[in-house]
Design a protein around this nucleic acid. Structure first.
Lengths: 137, 137
DNA sequence: TGTCTATATTGACAGATGTCTATGTCTGTT
DNA sequence: AACAGACATAGACATCTGTCAATATAGACA
């Protein structure tokens, strides 16, 4: 099993380097389709934790190969796993992957803490900050 | 300002309907590009909270219009806002949007709670659950 | 073995997307 | 007023993506 999300820190903590960004983008790209989002939510919200492909196919007005394709994409980025039992294939959520994504998007702590900060909190000036943007290509 | 993420519940709570999925997918699609992810992380992790376009452009080996295009996409889905001051345009993170996405991806509480559940927790059977998948097209 | 059902794979194709060059717009400066 | 710098927009183009019909594969069962 390949690791796509190399345990990247929250987006708000430090700039992603190109490699991290490529991996994370793959996963978000998988989430960037309405059908896949609905499939994922169907599987994720399922009581027993798993859903038969035939049930998913029945929930959309799309061809069976199209659903199969979307399932494959979700599986490739580590959001779902599948298991065959008898004639049917069941898909399950991988909660760890979802959790990593959620952590990645954690916004900065909302309270700006009006205490005197030792960090130079460069606020609105009329000149672009001279501080160079971190570049890790 | 248009609402794209109509305050959807976590993916793991209930299936998204087509409308919700379309909105959420727009935002994730914006995150599905490595360059945009890096731009977002540069802005989000910036101490002062805002970054001049010129600084962003300098961090990539891409043309200025390309960066401008990506900034526009991130702005359109509500992840960034921009403000012009003098000759420069500054971009800021919209932490609320990031927070909503993070909440959306919150995985189910890890502990399955071995208590006797009143919910019929349909576990591995050899027949697809007869329970129909929720369909809200 | 052969057939039926469930799912995956292949190949094709229209439409979306990322990138570039060229150009437009806005603002400060001479 | 004219110019220069910062950023946005428009148009072009190659590549990627979602969808389908057709076909392959794998298991169950007669």
């Amino acid at each position: 099993m390949e690791q796509i999300l190399g345990c990247s820190p929250p987006l708000t903590r430090e700039p992603l380097d190109a490699g991290q960004a490529a991996g994370v983008a793959r996963v978000f790209k998988a989430l960037g389709d309405p059908v896949r989002l609905r499939i994922l939510s169907i599987v994720a919200s399922r009581a027993g934790g798993e859903v038969c492909v035939c049930d998913i196919t029945g929930a959309f007005e799309l061809s069976q190969p199209t659903i199969s394709h979307h399932l494959k994409v979700l599986k490739e980025v580590g959001l779902l796993t599948s298991e065959r039992r008898a004639s049917w294939v069941y898909y399950r959520l991988v909660p760890e992957t979802l959790g990593e994504l959620s952590a990645l998007l954690t916004p900065p702590s909302s309270e700006p803490s009006s205490e005197p900060s030792s960090e130079p909190s460069n606020e609105p000036s009329n000149e672009p900050s001279s501080e160079p943007v971190a570049v890790s290509r």
